Structures are given as structure tokens and as C-alpha cells.
Amino acid sequence: MVLALFKRLLGRRPKMPRDQITRIPRAVRKATEPQVAAIQAALDEIAALPGLADIALNKRAPKGFYAAAARLVAAYDAYVEAVAKHMNLGTAARPGTPEGFRCCYEQPVGVSGVEALLIYRTIRPWRDFAEVAKRLAELGEAQFKEIQQRHTGKDPEKIAMTDAAVEEGRLAFARRGDLCPLLDPQTHRCRAWEARPNACRMHFVVSDPSGSDPREPGFDKVVARNIRLPVRQQVALMQIEKRMMLGVAPFLNAGLLQMLQFCEGQTIPEVGETPPRFAPDGQPAPKANRNNPAAKKFQKERAREQRRAGHKKK
């Protein structure tokens, strides 16, 4: 037992390319202060929205939430691109692109509650959402089993994120060779590119991207640069997530599935927003064709004309 404890504390833990720490040079941090300020402004905007804690109760986001979340994403993108330019990462492969799609085998990636809400809002209207959701469920369950098998605690349902079983289970799951369900397998492009997780936005592979497939022998030799949110902004995002009280799983597959279960297959609209309609099969309901002769408004008009004609005959 003591030896196992020492191994856990001092032994070499398995790491994946997205786990690599990239230290941003001081000069680059100084040069990107405007971008960091924009990120903080977007976070402050979200934090100031009334009713953040009511999302779990009302199944509605505060008015303006998604626009503010989109501004946060845009500000983070600007920061990543600015840092990448200063660090000469322009030719590095990135997840969700044909050049870096093998990074999408390294999944599921981590997500925050804000990210999960934005991604779910993006993918719920997809025509093939039912198939995507089924795949999310399969992969989420498979990943949890990989972690559970390596957990040595008394309660298999309570596993801390810092537990070695989580890192080992993530790596074992990645080596299954399952692509992220949000990637188009034909074009090798992310279908949710504008709303993709921060863990994908931050990731640049500077070594041969073919080694990014976890099944490749050189996977542990992949060299990556990960431009994470600055620490202060990471803390601010965590505080927002706590206030939302959604308890979203920290991984993409399980987190999106939780969103689906939470809103019972519907969407999570903003307060005052008319939610989209879905047909019984779960697909978006077709928009009414107002020019269709069988439309209700034309039926009403014909009924009125028939009544008028009947009155004239009398």
C-alpha cells in the first residue's frame, strides 16, 4: 500500500499532448495584454448577468448569455492567434482541420459549463443529432469504464479529477482510436468549429502531426504548444461555472450528454427567447410554408369566402 502511494505521488504519470505545459514568455504576455483584457471583459459580462444560478432551475440561460459567450470565444481566439504569431506557430497542425485531424483521436477533451452550453446550442439543431448523441453516450460510457477499472478507492462512483486513474483511463480510452463525434469523417473538419472546446482552440502540434494518433508508437513523443487561458481568467471561468450550479461533467462526451438529459432533448434558450421546435423524432420541425395552398391561413380564408358566398345566395 505504501509503495503504491509513493508510485502515485512520485511516479511518472501518463501524459497526452494536450497535457503538455507551455510557458508563455514574459515579452509575449506583455504584448498580448489587450487580448487578455478582452477575455476578462467578456468573462465580467457573463458574471454580471442576472439569473446565472437559475439556469439549473428554469432550464433557461440569462438574456444575452450566448452572445457574451460568443464574445468570450472570439476574445480567446484573438489571444491564441496573437500568442501563436509571437511564438511562430503559424504552420503547426491544429485539431479539427485536415492537417491536424489525428489530434481528434485524443479525446474526449475537457470542457467547462459555459463551453458545454455553447456547444450543445450549436449541435442540437443538426439533422443527424440523434446519431451524434448516441455516439456521445457510447464513448462517454466507455471512457468512464476505463477510469473505473483503474480506480482503487472504495466508491467507484466517486473519483477525483486528480486521481491517477483519470489520467491512465484517459490514455487507455484515447488508444481505442475513436474519433471525436463532432469531426466530419469525410472532410476531417470539425463540424462545430465556431463553438469547439477551448482544449482544441489552444492546441498546436509542432512535431509530425501523423504521430498525434494515440495508436501510433510515437504518440508519447509528440511535441505540442498549448496556449491556455491565462490563470486569472481560468479562475474567473471556474467561478462562473460554480455559480451556474449545473454540475456539468468536465469531459466533452459526458458533458454534452448531460445537457441533453438536463433539458429533456430540447434546447436551453435564453430568458424571453422562443425555443426552436422539434418533431417527435427529435429533428428540427420543418418551418411552415406560408405559400402552401393547404396552409391554415388559406383554409381560413376559403372558409370565410364560402360563408360570404352562402350569405349572398340567401
Rank of each mutant, 00 (worst) to 15 (best):
Q20V: 07
I21C: 07
R23Y: 00
V28L: 04
K30D: 10
P34Q: 00
A41T: 14
A42H: 02
A47M: 05
L52N: 04
D54L: 11
I55W: 06
L57N: 09
K59A: 09
A61D: 00
K63S: 13
A70G: 09
Y79H: 10
V80S: 04
A93M: 06
Q107M: 14
P108Y: 07
S112P: 08
G113A: 11
A116D: 06
R121T: 15
R124V: 12
W126K: 02
A130H: 08
L139H: 09
A142C: 04
Q143Y: 07
K145T: 13
E146W: 04
E146S: 08
Q148T: 11
P156M: 10
E157K: 09
K158M: 02
D163F: 01
E168H: 03
G169R: 04
R170F: 15
L171K: 06
A172D: 08
R175I: 01
R175D: 01
R176T: 11
C180T: 03
C180S: 11
L182M: 14
L183Q: 05
R189F: 07
R189E: 14
R191V: 03
R196G: 04
N198C: 02
N198M: 09
N198D: 00
C200A: 14
R201K: 14
D208V: 10
D208L: 14
D208I: 13
F219D: 09
N226C: 06
I227P: 01
L229G: 05
P230H: 01
V231N: 07
V235E: 12
V248T: 09
A254F: 06
L257V: 12
L260G: 05
C263T: 11
C263A: 12
E264D: 06
T267H: 03
G272T: 00
P275K: 12
P280W: 01
P284F: 12
A285V: 03
P286C: 14
K287T: 03
A288M: 15
R290Y: 14
E305C: 02
R307A: 12
R308G: 01
G310H: 15
H311V: 12
H311M: 11
K312S: 07
K314D: 07
